[in-house]
């Protein structure tokens, strides 16, 4: 029988050294994906590197330019951060959709990203918010735009010995907000059949000056859909431009047919979600004082 070693480094340096020295290491954050995958026999690591004792990885800080979310900061902690909720309601609601209350006490945006499921809820919301991934590794530190972080189902851009430290969400401009919607057949405890995040900025006249649209569960990775954003920018977010954005999202995706839904169904629904999420983001801006 295979045995599993467990290490809990207390610094980034120590973590990097531990990772480099092991053939079959897996990083353990909340474990809400990894432990399930191990139990199902999908992953059989020889070493678990628990990163939750590393200060940088556990910090949630609001800076002058960005909200910095440590890679293993739990969904529950982000959800209790009033400024995070005010600035990025769509990201917070996306993160809050993962699992149950119990899972929320363990799961993290960093884990959700690194697990690289095409259906990850928080990833489209991170993309819509122009998030940057802070990575450390043998060659030093680097930052990657979140939409480039994942490269396929279960695959990300981390090289051997590299580690995601934190995610920066740049602070939004005046009169901006975001929203995330996913479709599941139930109301909770489920995985997205399709997901859509929209971040918007409006001028005082209500004209959209900036937009980012990202979709999930409809392609090998979450996608940034610039054509959908272009359909919104310059418009008053009227029905016609919302429908144009929806159509652009449907056109951009490349979904599969599986037990959770057909490709055709996902293509249609992702457009509906984009349109509805844009309308919610708009109403959030309008509700700002």
């Amino acid at each position: 029988m295979q045995s599993v070693r467990y290490e809990a480094p207390t610094s980034l340096d120590q973590a990097a050294r531990t990772l480099l020295g092991s053939e079959n290491a897996k990083i353990l954050a909340g474990g809400t994906d990894l432990l399930v995958q191990m139990r199902l026999g999908l992953k059989q690591p020889g070493l678990l590197v628990d990163i939750k004792n590393i200060p940088e990885i556990m910090q949630l800080t609001l800076g002058d330019d960005a909200l910095r979310v440590g890679a293993a900061v739990t969904g529950a902690l982000v959800g209790e951060h009033a400024e995070a909720r005010r600035l990025f309601p769509g990201f917070v609601e996306a993160l809050g959709l993962i699992g149950s209350s119990q899972i929320q006490g363990r799961c993290s945006a960093g884990g959700n990203l690194c697990n690289a499921s095409p259906a990850a809820d928080s990833v489209p919301a991170l993309i819509a918010n122009r998030a940057l991934c802070n990575i450390i590794g043998p060659a030093g530190a680097r930052s990657v735009a979140v939409e480039s972080f994942n490269t396929g189902p279960g695959k990300n851009c981390l090289a051997a010995g590299e580690l995601l430290v934190s995610i920066d969400l740049p602070l939004p401009a005046h009169r901006s907000s975001d929203a995330y919607l996913r479709f599941i057949p139930r109301t909770e405890m489920d995985i997205a059949v399709a997901g859509a995040a929209v971040a918007l900025s409006l001028d005082e006249a209500g004209i959209c000056t900036a937009a980012r649209v990202a979709i999930g569960a409809v392609a090998p990775t979450a996608l940034l859909v610039t054509a959908a954003a272009d359909a919104l920018i310059g418009s008053a977010l009227d029905e016609a431009s919302l429908h144009a954005a929806a159509a652009a999202a449907s056109a951009a995706c490349s979904p599969i047919t599986d037990k959770r839904g057909t490709a055709d169904y996902r293509r249609k629904v992702v457009g509906v979600l984009v349109r509805r999420a844009a309308a919610i983001a708009k109403s959030r801006i309008e509700a700002q004082a």
Binding site: P185, R186, T187, E188, M189, D190, I191, K259
Partner: peptide, 23 residues
């Protein structure tokens, strides 16, 4: 839901969807 090999494709409560309380 059985796949082409005749194997059950949803042998768990994630994809065998019984209602949850909020439904």
């Amino acid at each position: 839901i059985f796949n082409e090999q005749g194997r059950l494709d949803n042998p768990g409560f994630l994809d065998y969807r019984i209602p949850v309380a909020s439904d």
